[in-house]
Design a protein around this nucleic acid. Structure first.
Length: 239
DNA sequence: GCCAACGTTGGC
DNA sequence: GCCAACGTTGGC
């Protein structure tokens, strides 16, 4: 597929447990994630980078910032028409739903951090689909990763708004994943509401205090903490 | 349409 | 390696 500019959304997930149980466990899980991913990193070294020398503490932080530490995501995309180099980059959740098999590739990401997060994604993980640059920004639905990262073909397409002349087929610079529609959230969750929570949590030390949507505002693919997902489940249950 | 935030580029 | 210029993101 080729979805021209999608890029930002977030993910949430399904879990069989109650939101309360998840919430209660979230701190512990955070610890376990650190430990586990540090171990995984040691045993299965991806070829990629051996960038950052890391102390113990940093190992934990860096893995949280990267792969296996996260199982949910937020991915942003624009649901309203906007033309980039003559091409409409509109791609809302309804557009995803309309695709064959309700599946599309998430092409067009041209930010290293966002790309790296996509490379960390694993099949089966879920993400929130966030509508950006539109009248009503916010979380519209839930999608899941159905194909792990592979080269984004649009980087080689001169006609594509996201063509990158500096990338080669031998060593592609940009990646994409395939995503599939899962469902709409029970209600649209506007940015304003997320912001309210974020601000409250900044004061109280709550779980959304460092939500990437606000702390890294231009990042179109971002990891999601367990807590937001839990809060959403709880919210949906109360409907 | 404005513009703040912030990532990237390139001269030095 | 610094940093100013520039381009993009994305809320409003």
């Amino acid at each position: 597929m080729s979805r021209p500019g999608k890029k930002r959304s977030r993910a949430t997930l399904e879990d069989k447990e109650s939101p309360e149980a998840i919430l209660a466990k979230s701190e512990i899980q955070e610890e376990e994630k650190c430990t586990r991913s540090a171990a995984q990193e040691r045993s299965s070294k991806p070829m990629g980078s051996s960038k950052g020398r890391a102390t113990k503490k940093e190992t934990c932080r860096s893995t949280q910032e990267s792969k296996q530490a996260f199982s949910h995501w937020l991915m942003k995309s624009e649901p309203e028409s906007r033309f980039e180099k003559g091409v409409d980059v509109k791609f809302g959740i309804e557009d995803l739903k309309a695709q064959p098999n309700q599946t599309a590739c998430w092409d067009g990401v041209r930010n290293y951090q966002a790309r790296n997060f996509m490379r960390d994604m694993q099949v089966g993980q879920e993400a929130f689909f966030y509508h950006s640059n539109c009248k009503e920004p916010g979380i519209a639905g839930i999608i899941k990763i159905v194909k792990e990262a592979y080269p984004d073909h649009t980087q080689f397409d001169k006609k594509d708004p996201h063509y990158d002349s500096s990338s080669t087929k031998e060593n592609p610079k940009w990646s994409m994943v395939d995503v599939q529609f899962v469902r709409m959230t029970k209600r649209f969750i506007p940015l304003s509401e997320l912001k309210t929570h974020h601000q409250a949590h900044r004061g109280s030390g709550g779980p959304l205090k460092d939500m990437a949507l606000f702390t890294r505002q231009r990042l179109s693919v971002q990891p999601l903490r367990e807590e937001l997902r839990s809060l959403n489940e709880q919210d949906e249950r109360e409907q």
